[in-house]
Design a protein around this nucleic acid. Structure first.
Lengths: 195, 195
DNA sequence: CCCGACATGTAAATGGTTACATGATTGC
DNA sequence: GCAATCATGTAACCATTTACATGTCGGG
């Protein structure tokens, strides 16, 4: 149910359309939470029905229209409650580590490729997250800039610090995953000396 | 669809009943992949229908019976194919980091509690995984012992090494998460000096 | 004889993915 | 006029969770 709270987080800054939100999920929030448009539009309708949002039709061009949502009092309260409550941690479900545990079944070259794919995947994420930290530090993050504009100056350091802290955690995790996969490559070389 | 392969991995060692597998998911494999009994039983039926497994009724006591599954040639091939193929990485969906990014919305004490919960969660996992590594090193892991018994001595080091490698990766990740949450606690103290 | 472990499911709901479908607008 | 982007959905499917349901066995 975190999608709902990811949407509330974004809509707490300013009113947006489903498409605006979808774009955010492809870039900024998408680095912590992903959702396709087909999940966003119905969820917005449900949230409106539940009183967390209010949507209004906005004219767009000559014949077009779009639906812009803004957060309600109840929506703000729900988000605050979620933030103050405790998160349930779900049980482990990790395909990469499941596979790693049985790597003796794979051909040495396939095992190596698995490790390289792990490195590629986490390197790509690392770059995105490092870019995010750079944007936060330089004040060039559009979403953060708009957020700060709605807050008193005394709140700026907190808002900025928590965003940076989040991305630094993700960066450290990605670096760890890369280091692990590199150990994996070394291990494979050790176990299959000729291959 | 990794549940299917987690089941094949276990059944590659020896025939088991749904309940045996469920027990394994509560302990050994459960540390990399969790599944409830209500997911295991139907999946075994589907895998049997797909020719990956064969089940036979085994008498159990006077009136009781149980269904024991053993892996087929096709099942072994499917598992090997999965091991030699490449894994799809799914998009990020991380409630703990989503929440961390908006921690300025939470009461300072709730923010601290979130970080402490993160530490508690990963500390608990860390202990389980360290125990697993200890069992592997000392040769007291029942599942691994049975697995090794089916293999020539020349294969023992590989099988053992990959299991240990897997758990070491999970341990490093948990340690990183704990370190991150501790930085979070320090950050909260810094941002809310009086609270 | 009772209790905890063994044994096997079904049903409903939730959350998420993939595919399909459609149409308007803006900029070149 | 065409393409890329803006805009909004539905439908089918798959994976997973939670709740319910039932019965046997073995040890004390």
């Amino acid at each position: 149910m975190s999608l709902r709270y990811a949407l509330l987080a974004l809509l707490s800054v300013e009113p947006m359309t489903g498409y605006d939100l979808y774009k955010e999920f492809e870039s900024s929030v998408g680095h912590v939470w992903h959702a396709p448009d087909s999940q966003i539009y119905p969820e917005l309708r449900r949230m409106e029905k539940d009183g967390l949002l209010e949507g209004e039709e906005v004219v767009w061009g000559q014949r077009g229209k779009k639906r812009q949502y803004h957060i309600t009092e109840a929506g703000t309260a729900a988000f605050r409650d979620w933030m103050n409550g405790t998160l349930e941690y779900s049980r482990v479900r990790d395909p990469a580590h499941l596979k790693a545990a049985y790597l003796e079944w794979a051909e040495p070259e396939a095992a190596r490729e698995q490790m390289r794919a792990h490195i590629r995947h986490h390197t790509a994420q690392l770059e995105q997250w490092r870019e995010k930290v750079r944007e936060i530090e330089q004040g060039t993050s559009p979403m953060l800039t708009r957020r700060l504009a709605t807050l008193p100056a005394s709140e700026h350091s907190k808002t900025t610090a928590f965003k940076k802290f989040t991305y630094q955690g993700l960066i450290a995790r990605a670096e760890q995953e890369i280091a692990w996969a590199q150990q994996g490559l070394a291990l494979i070389d050790e176990l299959y000396p000729a291959g």
